[in-house]
Amino acid sequence: MTESKHVITMLVDNQPGVLARVVGLFSGRGFNIESLCVAETTSPEVSRITLVTTADPLVMEQIIKQLRKLINVIKVRDMDKSKAVQREMALICVRTKPEHRAEVLRIVDIFRGKIVDTGSEHYIIEVTGDEGKLTAIINLLKPIGIKKIARTGTVALFREPK
């Protein structure tokens, strides 16, 4: 069976140890986590976890069922890409010699990014988009010289009916 990428979104009790239950489930049962995002929702009692995994359909079915079985997990959904908005943010610190500055600015502009920190030898760029967009800008900046990078991992929400 073919594996494919899935974005799983879940609402969980905002309590200590809940993330450990979710992550422990994945490691203990041999499922993989590619990225993971956790934050409070508008209700302080509930957090949203967004998780990206690659699995075949049977394993995916188990992942969803096993997550639902956890007592602190309130709701779980496997996000269909076409029905959800997915975004990731990256902070990219680029080495900027004077001769590269104009090109970096151009790239940032094309990707609708922002320069959020500057120095004599670096820019820190903030850029948001889906995974493909982030991969594209990273590939363009690589030859110029990426010093450091921090990515948030995917967050996602289902689109509301139009």
Binding site: G17, A20, G24, L25, G28, I71
Partner: peptide, 14 residues
């Protein structure tokens, strides 16, 4: 013990 028994209990509490 809550950490240790997390994968082998139906649920646990501290």
């Amino acid at each position: 013990i809550v950490g240790i028994t997390r994968p082998c209990t139906k649920h646990n509490y501290l």
